[in-house]
Design a protein around this nucleic acid. Structure first.
Lengths: 157, 157
DNA sequence: TCTTGACCTCAAGTCGGCTTGAAGTAGCAC
DNA sequence: GTGCTACTTCAAGCCGACTTGAGGTCAAGA
């Protein structure tokens, strides 16, 4: 009997039992059976949980992740979606890099008040400019949690 | 009279009126007066809104942003906090970069099923490993929306 | 003067991803 | 057989950042 008790999964995956039940409700995982009331899982659930964690880090919502799991237990990932997400990540990375550099500049800036620092004002202006037009509250294509004001290319490498 | 009507602020900042009222409730902005019922703003509110947008993109929660605005209208930013946030962004950027590369690999991988791709399995294993120990549900120091499992360096270039 | 329509207030709802609490049950040690 | 304890179910709550809806007010144009 190589099945894992839910307690074991909790221990090995570091995911709380409540989360496992929630994932089950959402169709992300399925226990292979019960011992008494207790859920028993196939060891492959650990791999699946890792995949879920990975996808979550990438910004996929649970609903979308659920669709990746075929009913037969295998996974089927849409390669186009992956590339699209990779592109999204590229943009997000660019934004965050700009932001990080801005923060470092402002931290080092000798201007008495930040508002007197020309670079800071420039960053603000750029942010405002990037923020105004269109204003897609949520990215139109794929779902991505933090609302991302577009454009990074202006100051991209 | 150089005051801006709320409608004008909505138009120029691209921020909905409901959000402006919400920000006011949170102490992030303050109208200089009213014309009838309508809020009137000092033009500097546009700069302030840009700053708020910038801070939000950096992952600062509104509460924290509010503390940046001194009662006299000036801003006072804690340089240490900025550097800390910059460090956070560095880590986040590293993670996302790994993820992006992984996605591209998987999309290009010729293995019939993703689970048969050794690289994919390696990534999963690393994710799982990074995910288990400690498990700070929310970053202990500063607040950052998506819960971020640490470590990226394991498979960094 | 009267209408229009954009603003106003206040309370409640939304969204995603969980967590928490009350009340119940069953495997295992004694 | 009796407890203990860790599980179970189900409903409700929480977080942050807003949005929505009902019902009210008022400046400006016809």
């Amino acid at each position: 009997m190589t099945e894992l008790d839910i307690a074991e999964v909790v221990r090995r995956a570091g995911v709380p039992a409540s989360t496992l039940r929630y994932y089950e409700e959402k169709g992300l995982i399925t226990p292979v059976g019960r011992r008494g009331l207790r859920r028993q899982y196939d060891p492959s659930v650990l791999e699946r949980l890792a995949l879920i964690a990975l996808a979550r880090t990438a910004g996929f919502p649970l609903d979308e992740i659920a669709r990746v799991f075929a009913p037969d237990g295998t996974i089927r990932i849409d390669r186009e979606a992956l590339l699209a997400k990779a592109g999204e990540l590229d943009r997000r990375i660019g934004e965050l890099a700009v932001l990080r550099d801005s923060l470092r500049h402002v931290a080092a800036c000798p201007a008495p008040s930040h508002m007197e620092c020309p670079t800071f004002r420039h960053i603000l202006a750029a942010t405002a400019a990037a923020d105004v037009p269109g204003r897609p509250k949520r990215a139109p294509g794929a779902a991505w949690n933090p609302s991302i004001p577009s454009s990074a290319n202006e100051y991209a490498p």
